[in-house]
Design a protein around this nucleic acid. Structure first.
Lengths: 188, 188
DNA sequence: GGCGATGTAGACAGAATTGTCTACATCGGC
DNA sequence: GCCGATGTAGACAATTCTGTCTACATCGCC
């Protein structure tokens, strides 16, 4: 557990600061590994303020996931657009993410692994996230009879690549292997 | 957190009982969600006995992963053999696993997500696990120039399918989509 | 002017966590 | 016959965790 004081901008409203701090700590260190006290200290609010916004840690966890979902989807859609908005955009987009120094896998996969058995809401939110990710991927594919099926296959390959990138030191192999998988899938 | 008393056979040596209990609880509920006291109570040993075998919880975590690795690999190799020892064996083997009532994803993916940032040994053991899984998969493939590359692609698809099966209520879609992915990869 | 939302400081309670300690029992093998 | 490994029961310490409480301040808006 690091002790970095990574204060968020103190001009933001309290709720925003808490959410940003929780996002960073939960994603980086894990959810159960992060105490509420730490979130409170690093977001620079007091306990009362915190508990007025989030009645319990579970509430914060859910809001964190919703926040992460919005943020990640925005980035994803934007990155795909920037890279051409077709299937070839997928690799460079993911490469951005995997190469970001703070990358530590998919927050939803991690959360379900950590809390899925104990907090059903986590699974539900995460399912929605993967569903939306898949839909966005689907829009990269040319319309056809089996576009939906293809989107599922690509999304599954992407999840595999996320795991791979999280396990390896460098994301290169993950991207390379994903590329193989995508090529095989489309020139079929 | 459930309270099921799922006692292991009391005739087994203490160390074995602890490991079996930890395996069940860690995999089912998550590692941080499971207190040492609970492992001790359910394995039917005392604190002293426990701490003589595992000086700290971290030791237990590592031994749990090693244990899981041995157990899972044994099952995997055996299942593949039973189903014909070629690539077609992969689906029915995974189907066994996914359909087992206690399936809750890959213990290593879950552990890395939960503890990877905080316990480097977990990442190291898990990397080894995925490496060995990939090697076993490689042996299903006909020898060729790109067998190693193909094994990586298949392993990545399998990880994607594991995630998918963990997220969905039923493992059917995961298996179906994995099948598509494998077919595409091989008839390329 | 007054009200409600938002903010602050920090003590406190109650539970759960990991890990230590004393004191004693059994049993297989050298 | 004795030693070391393995076992048992349960109190205890030290820390950490979530969540509550009192008491007070500020600010925007009706």
């Amino acid at each position: 557990m690091q002790t970095n004081k990574t204060r968020v901008s103190p001009t933001l409203p309290a709720r925003e600061r808490i959410l940003l701090t929780a996002h960073e700590l939960f994603y980086r260190d894990g959810i159960r590994a992060t105490g509420i006290d730490r979130v409170i200290a690093e977001s620079g609010v007091t306990k009362v303020t915190f508990y007025r916004h989030f009645p319990s840690k579970n509430d914060l966890i859910c809001e964190f996931l919703e926040f992460r979902h919005r943020r990640w989807m925005e980035w994803f859609v934007d990155a795909l657009q920037r890279h051409g908005e077709n299937l070839n955009a997928l690799l460079p987009a993911l490469s951005e993410w995997f190469n970001d120094g703070s990358f530590r896998g998919c927050a939803f996969i991690n959360s379900v692994g950590e809390l899925g058995a104990v907090l059903p809401e986590v699974v539900e939110i995460s399912r929605r996230h993967k569903q939306e990710m898949m839909e966005v991927i689907g829009q990269l594919l040319p319309p056809s009879r089996h576009r939906a099926d293809d989107a599922q296959a690509v999304a599954m390959a992407v999840d595999g690549a996320i795991i791979r990138a999280q396990f390896d030191q460098s994301p290169e192999r993950a991207l390379h292997v994903l590329n193989r998988l995508l090529k095989a899938l489309l020139t079929k």
